[in-house]
């Protein structure tokens, strides 16, 4: 688990660089480095399908960010706005207090050891007919979650098309 901690420290450093740097291109590339570290983390935790999805989506997001935002952006990032900073600080403090009381209510980490996943591993092949347990969970046991995820994705695409439309926009 030592390599995983090195990767996590690397990801934290990249995120801080992405937030604090003045150059926009450096920020975008730091975000890409963070995603790559996350992908390797998934691979080390033995989740290859998540790693592949993370890597592919990271490539696409990096291309969109570089082509879409870097060359045209007139916001001066050096000027600090104090009111949003204070408001976000207050909200983060409130969130942390709520989380502190919530965590005491939760059951201990991995306490009922593999109660549901035992059933999936034992009966998944018989009940669904696929050898791939991850897909069996995604597309059979938890299909409503997948349906909701696809719905959210579709709504986000329609939202982008609505914001960026040409017909009916003021400018």
């Amino acid at each position: 688990m030592f390599d995983l901690q090195i990767l996590i420290v690397f990801m934290i450093i990249c995120s801080v660089v992405a937030v604090e740097t003045k150059d926009l291109l450096s920020a975008v590339i730091s975000i890409g480095a963070t995603g790559l570290g996350l992908s390797v983390c998934f691979l080390l935790l033995q989740a290859p399908d998540l790693a592949i999805v993370q890597l592919v989506v990271e490539i696409l997001v990096l291309v969109i960010l570089i082509r879409g935002t870097v060359n045209r952006d007139g916001i001066d990032y050096r000027r600090r706005l104090w009111l949003p900073l204070i408001v976000s600080g207050v909200f983060i403090a409130l969130f942390l207090v709520c989380v502190y009381y919530l965590i005491n209510e939760l059951p201990r980490f991995s306490y009922p050891i593999m109660k549901i996943s035992k059933t999936y591993i034992a009966d998944g092949f018989k009940q669904t007919g696929t050898a791939n347990t991850v897909v069996a969970i995604l597309l059979n046991y938890r299909l409503f979650d997948t349906f909701a995820g696809v719905t959210v994705f579709f709504a986000s695409v329609i939202g982008v098309l609505t914001v960026m439309r040409k017909i009916g926009s003021k400018k």
């Binding site: 696409l60 291309v63 969109i64 082509r67 879409g68 669904t128 007919g129 696929t130 897909v135 597309l139 059979n140 299909l143 997948t146 696809v150 994705f153 579709f154 695409v157 982008v160 098309l161 960026m164």
Partner: peptide, 27 residues
């Protein structure tokens, strides 16, 4: 495996076409 390939094809259509449309519109 029943309907899983059909669900996969539908999800891939939504995701691929949606991301391509978002790329064209945004960029």
């Amino acid at each position: 495996a029943g309907l899983m390939p059909l669900y996969n094809i539908a999800i891939s259509l939504i995701v691929g076409a949606g991301l391509f449309t978002v790329f064209v519109t945004l960029v």
